[in-house]
């Protein structure tokens, strides 16, 4: 799964492109679908409940 920041940046870029450019319908639809999918993944990431905690055991390194 891509990092959340990448996910959100791409989503913002898609919205800006859709808002700013005169795209043909095919392209607009493709962007929209990608945007919706990224939005879904981002929401999923945000609403997952459990924080993952990993303990790294200290190894005495000289």
């Amino acid at each position: 799964m891509p990092a959340f920041s990448e996910q959100l940046e791409r989503l913002e870029a898609i919205v800006r492109k859709l808002e700013a450019e005169d795209l043909d319908l095919d392209e607009a639809l493709k962007l929209f679908e990608e945007g919706i999918e990224r939005l879904r993944v981002a929401r999923e990431q945000l609403t997952q409940a459990e924080l993952k905690v990993k303990k790294v055991l200290e190894i005495e390194s000289s």
């Binding site: 989503l11 898609i14 808002e19 319908l25 607009a28 929209f32 945007g35 919706i36």
Partner: peptide, 16 residues
């Protein structure tokens, strides 16, 4: 994210 979703929908409607 919610705002982005709304903008996404509006932008598509406008594009259409």
């Amino acid at each position: 994210c919610t705002v982005l979703g709304q903008r996404l929908g509006r932008a598509l409607r406008i594009a259409a």
